[in-house]
Design a protein around this nucleic acid. Structure first.
Lengths: 145, 145
DNA sequence: CTGAAACAATTAAATGTCAAACTATTTTTT
DNA sequence: AAAAAATAGTTTGACATTTAATTGTTTCAG
């Protein structure tokens, strides 16, 4: 294959990857916004639900966002009474973030919805295709950045 | 395969898709921010370079963003002297957006950088793998939303 | 021709995002 | 123990993003 054609293939693949992902994200994200949550808010609540309470820095790294960002997202979740901050006693630099009852109820229900949506989205691919897609995406993610 | 396992596979695939895409986007996006452009700004300039001048609504649909957004992005590009607005004479509702000399120079150089980055990213996959990835992503994008 | 509907663009309000500067606290070094 | 380095979180400023008004313009139906 000539360099020119290789380049065309790469651009083409990249575009399809972006469009496809965007498309899936939009539809899955709808389930979150239906529940009154942004994608980031959902990410934070989901991390707390499945990994348990943790400090803000850990929340940030779980959902791949900056710490400055997390402060605001948690501010907004706190205003809605979905999470609660607790300044750590051993090391006062840390804030432990924990789900309230209300937050737990909301994220459990919403997560179920989102999970169903994801299963539906992926359902257009056979199991084997999903495995292939996963493998290829993992390979793409592995470069150093 | 049991429903439970199917669900696990779907979630797993989804996660890898998101992480992989995010990872690629971040690295490619770096080339844009190195040039002082945001992803949206790059998208607008690239559309103008390759499709020619067009009204804001068309720009919006090209880069899949809302028209409210485009107004601001173009405001910022105009401030930097990279594009220029021209109110259409036949139909005064329309603004034609066109590249300035400065804008053309910048986007030509930046596009080359970005293209090289994309080719490098995709280069971790064989040609055949890229074709497969493209096909699978296209399939994912096709559902109605 | 005139009023209604359609349409392009703008504006506004809420949230998110990052990077960089800053504060408070703890740990390490000397 | 005091100074320096490291760390967690907050704040700020610039840009992005969406949705929902709002404005100005054109088209079309009666």
């Amino acid at each position: 294959m000539r360099q020119d054609a290789k380049s065309k293939l790469a651009l083409n693949t990249y575009t399809k990857l972006m469009r496809g992902t965007e498309s899936v994200t939009a539809r899955v994200g709808r389930k979150m916004s239906d529940a009154g949550l942004t994608i980031s808010q959902f990410g934070v609540l989901e991390a707390l639900l499945h990994k348990g309470s943790m400090c803000q820095r850990d929340v940030a790294s779980k959902i791949l966002k900056s710490t400055g960002n997390i402060t605001l997202v948690i501010d907004n979740l706190e205003k809605q009474g979905l999470v609660q901050r607790e300044r750590s006693l051993e090391d006062r630099r840390y804030c432990t973030v924990l789900l309230t009852e209300k937050g737990r109820g909301l994220i459990e229900a919403t997560f179920a919805e989102v999970e169903a949506a994801i299963v539906a989205e992926m359902g257009v691919l056979t199991d084997e295709e999903q495995q292939t897609l996963g493998k290829l995406c993992k390979k793409l993610g592995l470069r150093e950045g």
